[in-house]
Write a protein that binds this DNA or RNA. Structure first.
Lengths: 343, 343
DNA sequence: GTGAAAGCGCTAACAG
DNA sequence: CTGTTAGCGCTTTCAC
């Protein structure tokens, strides 16, 4: 019942373990006949080389550690899917850690990854999305990054100067707001996002910039941060609708809040997009299946994941790497936006 | 820059590596003073014990391998989330493999897991959902299961007699169909699901049983398998609506097809649930956010994941385990179902 | 309590 | 081409 090892194979083939190792890795020429014999024996015994032993001596595991805040949030499975596709093609395997948004879990997982000797780390969510992250937390990540290839995905850490790949959310939001303006909207609100998160700030900044550029007034009572959930969308749309002066369009921090906003608006008897236009951000899979289909900004999550792995691989291979790889989002126009009714 | 090892620690503390190992694992008493000294040194050097070396000698990794067919399908992240929660509490870590529905990838990952010496395997999707799985594929899994703890989650392999945990989909479907019948529906269709998949067959069987029990006729032209996608729902609802005699309610194989069916019905000018009632299966997160909110059967995905880990752990610890652990689904009544209009 | 030493299974010089 | 041997870093008897 004991696992067969290179020694067993070697003995049976009457060769040394070195030779067995050679056919296993193709690291040096081996006579065709002995190679064939060894392979036959390995096959017969269904030999499974012990990856632990191999990694221990090679000092590399072929494992990439992935930290993300919530696998249950459909954006992340898509990114992860891209990560896996890219990784599989290059023989990498993944160690996925879900921090459930807790910063101390990030620290914990970072350590576990180091113990497991992963070859590199992809860091998403949590502290790297904070606008003003605690110095100690930044420090910690920097120390790890000093010892092991690490890239921040869709986030940043002030003054840490780490390698990162991210969607250009500023540009993405401009796409969304300009779309609304081009449709003729002049009364545009913004919903969702915790205000201490970088995403929220960036998106709001882009939103304000656009309105200003277009010479439109910014009504602070229409700028309603909250969190990133569907419920946030519900709540803030409710608030918007309770005002006597209402916007005719709203830009949402992500698709979840957009969905919530849409639902509440419709439940209150409004029609989307006739009475109010709504645009989201992320283009989650179900966005196109809502009624009405959601206009949104696609982050191309899968592409983001692939790119992240490519960049990390360069880091692992000690190649030169751009400090920031920026991906351009795309506006996906569907049914939830239209020109305002002329009144 | 080199990693510090137990030897470095031992030397600095003027003790043997054995003692260092003892404080690391608490496997034997160590004098408090020397323990303190060692711990201080480890802390100072930020010592990270090499998990590979440890696993190699202990012959256990604390890793559970998880095979699933598509992390992008929101049902699986939820299951996985439950798996991780349960695992974390017991110190396990996970190796996630997405087969993207390809059977050969299942084989590949099974082998990789063996090489990585995971402590146990959780198998979801792919071949274990086939109603009639190729004998060789069954055999392969059986051989692995013979060597390593393995549990099938929401699936089965004929005559393999493997340990499994699964939702009772038969019961779940009965819940759904009976609900429709109790509402007064007599004309009920069934949409979606590939007919060679076990889920589909089980659910259809339950559907037929319910109708028969209630003395209702089964109209074969209203039983429309397809695949499990939103588009399948679109297509088959389209077909249903093109018939002159239409059902007043339809039971869908899962939430995706239900969403598709709903969307097509509404796009065609029907009202849900007024003109047609729709019930799904799974209770994905967004089900409650659709308009109308989707009535569905909850699999309690997260609970399923937790249970799977518990069972696997028992297997790993060589405890007695029930061959089948069955979870009861729950009907979640929301807005997409109502009594048929009396005409 | 603590130390010496033999593994765990594989890779990689080095020598031939 | 192939064999010998010394690691890789930790755990675990077995003595003392």
């Amino acid at each position: 019942m004991k696992q067969v090892t290179v020694y067993d194979i070697a003995k049976e083939a009457k060769v040394s373990v070195a030779t067995v190792s050679r056919v296993l890795n193709g690291t040096a020429p081996v006579r065709a006949s002995t190679r064939a014999k060894i392979e036959a024996i390995m096959h017969r015994h269904q030999f499974q080389p012990n990856a632990l032993a191999r990694s221990l001596s090679k000092k590399e595991t072929g494992i990439i550690g992935v930290i993300l805040p919530d696998i249950t949030n459909s954006f992340f499975p898509e990114v992860f899917s891209g990560i896996m596709q890219e990784g599989q093609e290059t023989g990498y395997t993944f160690f996925l850690c879900d921090t459930m948004g807790q910063y101390d879990k990030e620290s914990e997982f970072l350590n576990i990854m180091r113990e497991k000797r992963v070859d590199g780390i992809l860091f998403m969510g949590g502290r790297i999305n904070l606008n003003d992250c605690d110095e100690a937390l930044v420090q910690e990540v920097m120390e790890h990054a000093n010892k092991i290839p690490l890239v921040l995905v869709n986030g940043n850490l002030k003054n840490a100067n780490l390698t990162r790949v991210a969607t250009d959310e500023y540009a993405g939001t401009m796409l969304a707001v300009r779309h609304l303006i081009e449709l003729g909207h002049t009364r545009i609100g913004f919903i969702g996002g915790e205000s201490h998160m970088a995403t929220t700030m960036v998106k709001m900044r882009a939103y304000r910039k656009c309105l200003r550029e277009a010479g439109l007034p910014i009504r602070e009572e229409w700028v309603l941060p909250d969190d990133f959930s569907v419920d946030a969308g519900n709540r803030q749309m409710q608030r918007l609708l309770s005002q006597t002066e209402r916007p005719t369009a709203v830009c949402c921090v992500n698709d979840f809040t957009a969905i919530g906003a849409m639902k509440t608006a419709i439940d209150q008897g409004m029609r989307v997009p006739d009475d109010i236009s709504i645009v989201g951000f992320d283009d989650i899979v179900l966005a196109r299946h809502f009624i009405p289909e959601l206009t949104t900004v696609s982050q191309q999550a899968s592409e983001l994941g692939r790119t992240a792995v490519q960049v990390l691989r360069q880091l692992i291979n000690q190649e030169r790497v751009k400090k920031l790889t920026s991906l351009s989002p795309r506006l996906v126009i569907r049914q939830s936006t239209a020109s305002p009714r002329s009144e």
